[in-house]
């Protein structure tokens, strides 16, 4: 991964984003940066706009107000989506009978966009296997995706999301329906990706308990950004309680 010093520290800048589904306000005036190397957890109650926010960042939804800057470019002009990895919310999007092997799932992302210069078949295979290895799924490459356990499927989806060596990886509630022991391994793996591979990680989660050990930054969302800052500050500030109590205070602590 290229992490040269002259590259800007801010990977993604969310500026004053608002979004509504018809009359229902989902997000209001959300502003925060995502810095290179962050391990950021976006937390908040159901319907607080977490998934919507990520979808706006990824260009899947258009904000009604505000702008997102990705790697220094306005989102609507940004086109190098290979630099952004995404693992969507599980369960909602998977057909358990789909005839794709784990390897093919990773290949979809890797080969769907034409590569220049073209790689040989052997080089392609190596890249795909490397991604599977990074998530510890190299021995399952020929398994049908529906035949794997929930946790294993998630690993394959992460392999898919990192196969193009992105700068940043978004995960939407990745551990839903995964038992707690598997979750622990799962977060360890994310830790490795974050620290060793230098991939910035943004994670939507309900589970404030387990992320405590891993994340460096927390963004607390409840329509508005209630808190954004380091994890340590977050624990001290008791911002989560404020949020639940309905205080819409925006505080930035860095």
């Amino acid at each position: 991964m290229d992490l040269s010093a002259n590259e800007s520290k801010t990977l993604i800048d969310v500026k004053d984003i608002s979004f509504s589904y018809g009359p229902i306000k989902v997000l209001q005036d959300v502003t925060f940066p995502i810095q290179r190397g962050d391990f950021l957890a976006i937390i908040g109650p159901n319907g607080s706009g977490k998934t919507t926010l990520i979808k706006i960042i990824l260009g899947l939804l258009k904000p009604s107000k505000g702008k997102v800057w990705i790697l220094g470019k306005p989102a609507e002009e940004f086109d190098d989506w290979r630099k952004i990895g995404y693992v969507p919310q599980k369960a909602t999007h998977i057909d358990p009978f789909f005839p794709a092997s784990a390897r093919e799932v990773v290949a979809m992302e890797f080969l769907a966009r034409n590569k220049f210069p073209r790689l040989t078949k052997r080089e392609e295979d190596l890249c795909i296997e490397k991604a599977l290895k990074q998530v510890g799924m190299e021995h399952f490459k020929n398994w049908r995706i529906g035949g794997l356990s929930g946790g294993q499927q998630q690993r394959v989806f992460i392999a898919r999301a990192i196969v193009n060596e992105p700068h940043i990886l978004f995960l939407d509630e990745p551990t839903t329906g995964v038992d707690s022991e598997t979750q622990e391994h799962f977060y360890d793996m994310l830790d490795t990706l974050n620290k060793k591979e230098g991939i910035t990680i943004v994670l939507i989660t309900h589970d404030t308990g387990i992320v405590n050990k891993h994340v460096t930054q927390v963004a607390c969302l409840n329509q508005r950004l209630v808190y954004h800052g380091t994890h340590a500050e977050f624990c001290r500030a008791g911002a989560f309680k404020d949020m639940l109590a309905g205080h819409h205070l925006i505080s930035h602590r860095h």
């Binding site: 990824l58 260009g59 899947l60 086109d79 190098d80 989506w81 290979r82 952004i84 995404y86 693992v87 969507p88 999007h93 998977i94 057909d95 789909f98 794709a100 093919e104 799932v105 290949a107 979809m108 992302e109 080969l111 769907a112 966009r113 989806f157 898919r160 999301a161």
Partner: peptide, 19 residues
Amino acid sequence: YHKFMYMTFDQEAAKASGI
């Protein structure tokens, strides 16, 4: 082939990857 397979399998992820 890979684009069609991707969007058939996981439309949202396919969109997010710029397809």
